[in-house]
Nucleic acid binder design. Structure first.
Lengths: 342, 342
DNA sequence: ATGAAAGCGCTAACAG
DNA sequence: CTGTTAGCGCTTTCAT
């Protein structure tokens, strides 16, 4: 038998100690802690006194073990630095804490083995659900493991690899359409897209939305005006630099991500152009700096909150399927009518 | 007695099931899982086969409960958006996972009640240690709770409220001294400080280091050249705008935080000044954009890694006391000799 | 309203 | 080497 070490007073007090101090049974002590079942007032008081005297705090793990419930949810994101993911984390964390859940975050940088390792930890900790931003890399075997374990997977941002999976997706197509139409409405005809990587639905859908808006206005998509197939500011900068050098340069640039917009911003300034006098700039999604920059940049707002809300609903209602997050544009100083030309 | 529900095959397989399938005792199964004690080759093989057949994964919580160990560490930061904290999170997470630990992150935004709530969760989950960036708000009662629970507290960034506490601190004074001396060495005499809030050791020490460097060069600190007592880019922008308007404006600006530098950068551009031709700019710490901006901005580098390393050492060696992280400057294009003047 | 006791899934004595 | 067994701290049935 395990050597039951002498009850260490330094160690965390247990329910048994509380019960002893209060002079009641463990069961009664438990009942006042959980608060569910009726306990006589005087005993309740004695137990509560013992609790605060000892500084008792229930052991969440023992509790879950016995209750056979799993109050852990995982979040897998490529990067916590990304404002969208940071927002989702913040809000998810807040909401889940409210329900007594624990959120385990993993930064996977899109690497498959990191995702594998993260999933392993989550399984070992009996996660009930896992929220995944980096859908692309989540290999089928992992998905299978999740299913086998009855762990709900909720994808967001990118559309999931499996058609029937639960997903909270931003309306990328609609967003691009919205922003591009805004630019067209302002009078722009040469609108460039700094597109982002086209290996996931995010990039592809934004590109499609952009093209659709153009088509609706009667123009074709000029391949010369689409560049920047990555997600870093350096990619954005180089793409914009190239875009500004072509024969018939754009009067507006739409960036598919704040980092891309940051790069474009630098390129525009290097070129000595004025925003929005010479060129307009609009970006997907929100980021602190988009507001602080001069002029503040038009973008698609309120996203993190909406995504997080969608995830919470999905989590709570056991909903399965696709949730589309509607998008709204925050029109700011960086977009205006194009300069008049010859 | 609890109604042992019929063994649900959908649910996570237990060691007992593994043992049954392998035709061995549950103890033997446990032994091959933990891998510690000798087990005969054939039995080992049978168990391993059963494990992969069932897809068995040990339940971390039951394990910890039985082992009476606590493999959870908490991290409390004001904001995950801050590159320093994001770095610390990333590295801590990686290192701790390696040791089988779980990292629970909390964004407290410096609010005392958020810190209180976070600590509560950590206590309930039997955290072994908690790493705290927002030292200022961690009220004494919480500290007391931690001590009582024998939870190690490791502070970083700000110096802790309690003198004897364990702390991994950046050498803020030395860093400011280093950067300011660099600027002085370049020939600058009018060096401004965008200081950050002076209600914590971080801001105060950086200010002191700046003054010390000035004093060493034989100049006094001109109060007119110190502004920006907050941590947002907006504060930095306003401070720098003011600084550039005074009668005898600075030829160099030292920002106490990347956000402050971002604001200063905007102000400088608004003023139409060239970096580093008209004015030099240096910043505390690293941030992606500091590298991508044109010109890249001189700053203090490698910080997150160093802090995280210090924390890990502290965690592993049970070290108590103060660890100072040495700082190194990354000299980049944003600092050069001041313009020649009349 | 209360207490005794049976385990949740696991590890580690202890005795073969 | 292997099996038996006593709990880790907690909740909950069952019987008072």
């Amino acid at each position: 038998m395990p050597r039951g070490r002498p009850p260490d007073e330094r160690s965390a007090p247990t329910l048994e100690q509380v019960a002893r101090v209060a002079g009641v049974s463990i069961a009664t002590a438990s009942r006042v802690v959980t608060g569910a079942v009726p306990v006589s007032p005087d005993r309740r008081a004695r137990v509560q006194q013992a609790i605060s005297l000892l500084g008792y705090v229930p052991d969440e793990r023992a509790r879950d073990l016995r209750r056979r419930v799993h109050k852990t949810v995982g979040l897998l994101v490529p990067s916590l630095g990304d404002p969208l993911h940071a927002d989702v984390f913040r809000i998810l964390h807040r909401e889940l804490s409210r329900d007594g859940f624990t959120l385990l975050v993993f930064e996977t940088t899109g690497k498959a083995d990191a995702e594998k390792a993260s999933m392993d930890v989550l399984v070992r900790n009996h996660a009930r659900a896992v929220v995944v931003a980096a859908a692309a890399g989540l290999a089928p075997p992992i998905l299978q493991l999740l299913r086998r374990r009855d762990i709900r997977a909720i994808f967001y941002n990118d559309r999931p690899p499996q058609p029937a999976a639960t997903c909270v997706c931003v309306d990328d197509h609609g967003g691009a359409l919205l922003l591009t139409s805004h630019l067209i409405g302002l009078g722009h005809r040469r609108i460039a897209l700094v597109a982002g990587a086209l290996d996931g639905s995010t990039g592809v859908d934004r590109h499609a939305g952009y093209s659709a808006a153009l088509a609706a206005a009667g123009s074709a998509t000029d391949p010369q005006l689409v560049a920047g197939f990555g997600w870093t500011s350096e990619v954005g900068r180089q793409a914009a630099t190239g875009l500004l050098r072509i024969a018939d340069p754009p009067t507006a640039i739409l960036a598919a991500h704040p980092s891309l917009a940051a790069g474009a911003l630098i390129a525009i300034r290097e070129r000595g152009l004025d925003i929005p006098g010479d060129i307009s700039l609009a970006s997907f999604f929100e980021s602190d700096y988009l507001r602080f920059v001069d002029p503040p940049i038009t973008c698609l707002g309120g996203l993190g909150a909406a995504v997080a809300a969608g995830i919470m609903t999905t989590l709570r209602t056991e909903h399965t399927g696709l949730v589309e997050i509607p998008l709204a544009a925050s029109i700011r100083g960086s977009t205006a009518a194009p300069p008049v030309r010859a």
